[in-house]
Design a binder for these strands. Structure first.
Lengths: 115, 115
DNA sequence: CAGAATCCCACTCGATACTG
DNA sequence: CAGTATCGAGTGGGATTCTG
């Protein structure tokens, strides 16, 4: 948790939040997890088209380290893994929801303006 | 607006939102603007202790380009400038608010756990 | 005070190849 | 399928200096 540079000495709450979700793709991953409940690596790779496999693995690892998501490995052939939100991770729902709602509003706006 | 790499072809709303606020310090700047209504450069520089002057200027410029904040210059000596939210920028309040609320919750949590 | 310009290093991140 | 390892180009971003 000291990989980020935000100084929380003064306890700025937004900086605290950013420590967890400021990774380049984290909130998008969380968005999909809130929608699907369970996600597989390959599925996320398809959804996040512009996120490289390496980046996806890194972001997932950080989210797991931070206790936001849980990784479940099934020893089958071919290998199978899935990711779910932890109880702690689920508390982030209002944040992700607000982001998704604003994005929906904006997409609508952008569409009507282009007409 | 093509400085970010998020692909919104499929209209992922979270990615749309990130196009505007994913800059390293943007949401913190917005947080202060929602609190203070009006902010000066030097004041922000003091508040965002770990954000360099260069970064602060860059982030403010991007927010201005995106129509989220407005820059007001007063031709006095010494130079004076302030920043306010545009009408469009104000629509982001629920997002910033959700982040600040979660951060407050987390700070509380972290404090009680350290005892 | 409020920035712009320049320099330059560290690290990010994509591409590719490999593994259980 | 679900990753890890390695490498190298590109960029982020700090330090410093300069200006109106």
């Amino acid at each position: 948790m000291n990989r980020h540079i935000y100084d929380c000495q003064e306890g700025c709450p937004v900086e605290s939040t950013l420590q967890f979700i400021s990774g380049k793709w984290k909130s998008v991953i969380l968005y999909h997890l809130f929608k699907e409940q369970v996600c597989h690596f390959g599925q996320l790779k398809r959804d996040l088209k512009d996120c490289s496999q390496r980046m996806l693995a890194l972001q997932l690892a950080e989210l797991e380290q931070d206790g936001i998501i849980q990784k479940n490995i099934y020893q089958e052939i071919p290998l199978k893994t899935d990711y779910t939100l932890t109880k702690f991770g689920k508390t982030l729902e209002p944040v992700v929801l607000a982001m998704s709602q604003w994005g929906t509003y904006y997409n609508q706006l952008a569409k009507t303006e282009s007409n």
